[in-house]
């Protein structure tokens, strides 16, 4: 039995579709109810929905053998897991964004509001730039508007939210997409099963790419 942690929301639903298409379906998951875990003993899988930022925790600690997590979460928390496959879905960019006419005053410490303090710190460290990190949990775009910060580091998908708030992406830090991750110990004890799942996902991906 492989335990699969799926991120709640659109990405998780899409990821489940891919897994189902790859032969790991679990019809119970489509029923609308409040159940938290869904099992298909025939296919040897059990799914559960967790908060997207918690997927890597479930996998790292072995409560889930494998999971689907965004590269943003993996970069932010650096969990000790295997990152086996890029699923190519949930594509977006980690960006520095700010006012469209942003000018960086070299005499001031840059104030950066973000949900991803580690990613932001690492990025500015790599440029040897001192910054003041402001960790927020949501509505990051508000920070520069109210003067709480100079810029933000956040995920940009289409840039629409930024545009509506008269902000613009200034620099791209890294490209983000969903990854298939595995617990390191599970990989050893359930090697065949996990590889079968990875290979099925990979075949599915190439098929999709070919269709596009």
């Amino acid at each position: 039995m492989i335990n699969v942690a799926l991120p709640k929301g659109r990405l998780g639903e899409k990821a489940y579709e891919t897994l189902a298409a790859a032969g790991f379906d679990c019809p119970a998951i489509l029923e609308k109810n409040r159940k938290l875990t869904f099992e298909n003993p025939e296919k040897g899988v059990r799914y559960f929905w967790v908060k997207p930022s918690d997927v890597s925790i479930y996998v790292e600690r072995g409560a889930a053998d494998v999971g689907i997590a965004g590269k943003d979460i993996l970069l932010e928390y650096s969990p000790d897991v295997y990152e086996l496959l890029d699923l190519g879905m949930g594509r977006c960019r980690m960006c520095v964004a700010g006012p469209e006419d942003f000018y960086q005053d070299p005499n001031k410490t840059l104030r950066v509001a973000t949900k991803f303090p580690h990613i932001a710190t690492r990025y500015y460290d790599s440029r040897s730039q001192d910054i003041d990190i402001i960790k927020l949990n949501g509505s990051i775009e508000l920070a520069p508007i109210l003067g709480l910060s100079d810029v933000i580091v956040d995920i940009v998908e289409t840039g629409k939210t930024l545009l509506e708030n008269h902000l613009a992406p200034l620099e791209t830090i890294v490209d983000i997409s969903a990854r298939f991750i595995s617990n390191k110990v599970s990989y050893k004890f359930k090697h065949q099963e996990i590889l079968a799942m990875r290979d099925a996902l990979e075949r599915n991906l190439t098929k999709k790419e070919a269709a596009e």
Binding site: V81, Y82, E83, L84, L85, D86, R179, Y187
Partner: peptide, 9 residues
């Protein structure tokens, strides 16, 4: 260490 094939690619 992460068996990170996408990273190498």
């Amino acid at each position: 260490a992460q068996k990170n094939a996408p990273g190498i690619q």
